[in-house]
Amino acid sequence: MAVLLLAEVTGGELNLDATSKAVAAAAQLGEVTALCAGASAAAAGEAAAKIDGVAKVLVAEDDSLGHRLAESTAALIVSLAGDYEHIVAPATTDAKNVMPRVAALLDVMVISDVSGIVDGATFERPIYAGNAVQTVKSKDATKVVTIRTSTFDAAGEQAAAAVETVSAAADPGLSEWVEDHVAESDRPELTSAGRVVSGGRGLGSEENFELIEKLADKLGAAVGASRAAVDSGYAPNDWQVGQTGKVVAPELYVAVGISGAIQHLAGMKDSKVIVAINKDEEAPIFQVADYGLVGDLFDVVPELTEKL
């Protein structure tokens, strides 16, 4: 039973956290071959070869693969698909863009956001914004799967596996990259951070969101936001935690001024320890919090930041 795993490669670099968590999941299905694709991907391939459980690495370098465009990346995966029973990727926005396209080209259903593996054909996945968990069994010969990385522990290290190069498929020339706007930050990346501090509508303004950032920096945490805060313009969208944003599962999640709408809970309720700070003692966030503190965040957060 062979597994082809699309490694998460951005700008020539391997996203080790997302990829090694997907490898840990994929290793339950069979022998893992990791595919690193990009305009430059050799360095990412070398890094992927050291993830425990990777039996072989395929490196595909071509300008057409440079910005993870769906059409060329999907064509590459399909050209390799014949040798594999499973095609797996971490459920990043890039993979969510590519994998359903791969599945349709192979005439199989995609199985998105898998949170549990029962056997080679049977998978658990959250539906209805995480309000239910469905167990599905695929009848397709090839299983195309994306892995919800927050529910799997990262694979460790190993002596490097063999690396081979493969050719890109013909570029269908349907789309071209124009530009990226990537937020520069010294803080840890939201989906892999061990600690996350998130702010909600209770902050009241973009300026007040600085309170969240100061607390996060004191804790060495990533900064998140509720959809309400994003919709109100207090925080950028790529900070959004929730069903329509990012799903996180840090060791410590601090929710400040967040009421706890279902859609937000879906993005953080797998966190190990949840702290909620809210002035409304009836806020639903307290029902999932390990430690709740009722109080005015404008008093509590500065005090907490100072005393830590």
Binding site: S138, A289, E303
Partner: peptide, 23 residues
């Protein structure tokens, strides 16, 4: 359908936590 739905369950509930009185 290509995917047979075997079951649909409630997600695991979190245990109710405690309220603290101060920072």
């Amino acid at each position: 359908p290509r995917l047979e739905i075997l079951k649909t369950e409630e997600p695991a509930e979190r245990k109710a936590g405690v309220m603290v009185g101060s920072v």
